[in-house]
């Protein structure tokens, strides 16, 4: 039991990450993908914060400084992962913002935010582009034969 609880947090982080990853892969809706990406990242946050915990620890903030002694007995949690995750959260929200901006733009240009429909339209775009750009070698050859 203790062993399981000892890595319980790490399992939950994996589960959260995988829920996010599943959403990113399986859901065709772009907004859903963006949200799922956020979930994916929060899994990592959970991992980092979990490793900072010390049994019986408390928040790494001194409360009393002036009298030279600290008010709280016992150990403090490790602040380093907290700091890292603060940064990561900020990065995450920045990415979310840019992703949403892109999605809004995509909606404007494609008229949909479903990945499979967009994929189909992209494919059509590419076919048109391919045909327009095709070097008509084959046509030339046929022409040459005709002339000969």
């Amino acid at each position: 039991m203790t062993d399981v609880l000892g890595i319980y947090n790490y399992w939950i982080y994996v589960i959260l990450m995988m829920i996010g990853l599943y959403g990113v892969i399986a859901k065709p809706n772009l907004i859903k993908q963006a949200i799922a990406l956020g979930l994916f990242q929060t899994g990592i946050f959970l991992y980092y914060i979990s490793m900072a915990v010390v049994d019986g620890g408390t928040a790494p903030i001194w409360t009393t400084i002036d009298d030279g002694a600290q008010k709280f007995q016992g150990p403090y949690d490790n602040p380093l992962p907290h700091v890292l995750i603060l940064t990561a959260i900020v990065v995450g929200v920045s990415i979310l913002a840019v992703a949403l901006a892109l999605i809004v733009n995509i909606k404007r240009s494609y008229g949909t935010i479903e990945a499979d429909e967009i994929e189909r339209m992209d494919h059509e775009d590419r076919l048109i582009e391919f045909r327009a750009g095709q070097a008509p070698d084959a046509a030339d050859d046929a022409e040459a034969h005709h002339h000969a």
Binding site: F45, I49, V53, T58, A59, P60, D77, I85, L86, V90
Partner: peptide, 17 residues
């Protein structure tokens, strides 16, 4: 969860963001 694990600043940020 963050608060419970004493990650005050992270919880602050998570709540706000």
């Amino acid at each position: 969860v963050w608060v419970n694990m004493h990650a005050m600043d992270v919880a602050f940020t998570e709540a706000a963001v």
